[in-house]
Amino acid sequence: MIRLSHVSRDFPRRGRALDDVTFSVEKGEFVFLTGHSGSGKSTTLRMLHMADRPTEGEVRVAGFSSKLTSDREIWKLRRRVGFVFQDFRLLPGRTARENVAFALEVTGTPRREIGPRTSRLLSQVGLSARTGALVEELSGGEQQRVSVARALANEPLVLLADEPTGNLDERSARGILELFRDLNASGMAVLMATHDLDLVRSISDVRTLELSGGRLVFDSGA
């Protein structure tokens, strides 16, 4: 599903952000990517949805290779990969429903399907009662659930999450983690970057990768 082979990424000023990182995530797997700030977690996730490319090595996600996929074809990959951010990235001034429907609309879903699918997605993340609320009226946890519903719009094979609980209180964070576990139980691969070690330790059966200074220093599944 995801395979990084000897991936390095150099930035002109910052220097080497990733250094010879190799790991893979199989279909249906749940993996935590941990490490301190600046360890390379976000850079790794950016590689995975090809917002950035490696300086050396190769990234393969859902059949798309960083060496072979042109910028014009990235949209195909993005429809196979759902992405959730720490800051939610929702459109302000729109309702929860409109935010999810937007993702369906811009990826060419037939109009008559958008309504029912939006309802289904919002119900899947436990937000059936808040569909008409503006995003500004939602709590952090609820906003993150909208963002997850949006990420699921194209029925992705894998869900990538960059510090999805970073802006949430403990209770909301646990709720989001449970949601991810449910999605994973239904067969979706999940790669969640977090520096919250308490959250990681709260679940024992999940594989953990640890990055430090751009190098993969620990893999519990290895």
Partner: peptide, 8 residues
């Protein structure tokens, strides 16, 4: 940004 993210 959202359009790009979801694969427009």
């Amino acid at each position: 940004q959202v359009m790009r993210l979801v694969g427009a």
